[in-house]
């Protein structure tokens, strides 16, 4: 998980790139990292272009991240979902909870 802060839109926006699998083994890592990222900004984009697989634990972690962001008046948006990951979001109705963008550029502009 690589995180950086982008200021190109005039706002301090965080972009976190997820890769590989997000499942029971590393979902807690996302939660702890997210709290660390929140110290820099509360407006965060998860770039899922390199995320191959997500399971229910991973989804739970992403939803927890959204809740944490909202609690601190921030937001969490998703970008670059692969078709397979998008299918999991659709199947679990998690798609309805998130703002999902086809690329990080669109996600940056949406804040």
């Amino acid at each position: 998980m690589i995180f950086h802060v982008d200021g190109s839109t005039g706002k301090k926006l965080g972009i976190a790139a997820l890769n590989g699998r997000l499942d029971a083994k590393n979902s807690s890592e996302l939660l702890t990292s997210f709290e660390r990222w929140q110290q820099q900004t509360n407006l965060i984009i998860l770039d899922c272009s390199k995320l191959d697989l997500i399971d229910s634990s991973g989804l739970g972690a992403v939803v927890s991240c959204l809740r944490k962001a909202i609690e601190k008046n921030g937001d969490l948006k998703l970008a670059n979902l692969s078709p397979k990951v998008a299918m999991v979001f659709e199947l679990t109705k998690a798609k309805k909870l998130f703002s999902i963008f086809t690329d990080t550029g669109s996600a940056l502009q949406s804040f």
């Binding site: 499942d23 399971d55 229910s56 634990s57 078709p83 397979k84 299918m87 999991v88 199947l91």
Partner: peptide, 24 residues
């Protein structure tokens, strides 16, 4: 979709995912 065992298929795009997660 077409669901078969732990496989979920989107027929139009031909995308097929195999779920490792028995809860889903």
């Amino acid at each position: 979709k077409i669901a078969a065992g732990n496989m979920l298929i989107e027929p139009e795009g031909g995308i097929c995912i195999t779920m490792d997660d028995p809860h889903l």
